[in-house]
Structures are given as structure tokens and as C-alpha cells.
């Protein structure tokens, strides 16, 4: 049985690193907003937005919420919930024929 709190003191990013992540997040947000107004990319808009949003999601989760450095169990729990959520969203959209033209 491990003592709880072990590994907690392992690595904490420095404030500078946190600030750098914030800059990256802002840049991604700006790119998201810019991409929306580029007509040439209108066809692939949804995949691009998805990738950018997931990246922001992952950055906040891994660094701000410390998942990258914490026990895998936390990540498993959170990712499990997300997988279920996305699955339910897609399933419901399918059920209500959102994908049918």
C-alpha cells in the first residue's frame, strides 16, 4: 500500500511554464477565431476546430490540472468520463438524425 501523497511533490511546473502555456492557449484561441473566417477552409472547418479545441482541453488538463504528473488513475477516470460523454453526444445526434441530410 503506497502512502498517499507520494509523487505529489514530484514535479510542479514553474510559474513561467504556466505562463507559457497560457500564451499557447491564447494563440490557439486566436487561430480558432481566425480560421472561422477563412472561406477557403470552410469545408474542413469542423475537424480543424475540433483539433484546436481538443488541444486546448488537453493542455489545461495535463498541465493546469496536473494530470500529466499525477497518478494514471485520475486520468483514466476523467478520460473515461469524456469518452462516455462524447459517445453519448454522438449517439443522441444519430438518434435524432442530425447527420441525415
Amino acid at each position: 500500500m503506497a502512502t498517499p501523497g507520494a509523487g505529489h511533490e514530484a514535479s510542479h511546473p514553474s510559474p513561467a511554464k504556466y505562463a507559457a502555456i497560457a500564451v499557447i492557449l491564447s494563440v490557439i484561441t486566436a487561430v480558432e477565431v481566425w480560421v472561422v473566417y477563412v472561406e477557403a477552409l470552410a469545408g474542413v472547418l469542423l475537424p480543424i476546430l475540433a483539433v484546436l479545441s481538443i488541444t486546448k482541453f488537453a493542455l489545461v488538463g495535463m498541465f493546469y490540472m496536473h494530470l500529466k504528473f499525477d497518478s494514471r488513475l485520475f486520468s483514466a477516470m476523467f478520460v473515461g468520463g469524456i469518452v462516455l460523454t462524447v459517445g453519448i453526444i454522438i449517439a443522441l445526434m444519430g438518434l435524432f438524425q442530425v447527420f441525415v441530410d
Binding site: 500500500m1 503506497a2 502512502t3 498517499p4 501523497g5 507520494a6 497518478s71 488513475l73 485520475f74 477516470m77 476523467f78 473515461g80 468520463g81 469524456i82 462516455l84 460523454t85 462524447v86 453519448i88 453526444i89
Partner: peptide
């Protein structure tokens, strides 16, 4: 604890997981 992890932190993650479903 049986997981070796702090139970309050574990609870918070389980709760956030469930809140994901709520917003879903």
C-alpha cells in the same frame, strides 16, 4: 487508502467526470 491516493482528490476527479456527462 487502498489506492494510495488522497480520497478527496479522487472524489473530485470522479465528480468532474460525472459533471462531464451532465454538460454532455
Amino acid at each position: 487508502t487502498t489506492t494510495g491516493l488522497n480520497h478527496r482528490k479522487l472524489l473530485m476527479w470522479v465528480f468532474l467526470s460525472s459533471d462531464c456527462l451532465f454538460f454532455g
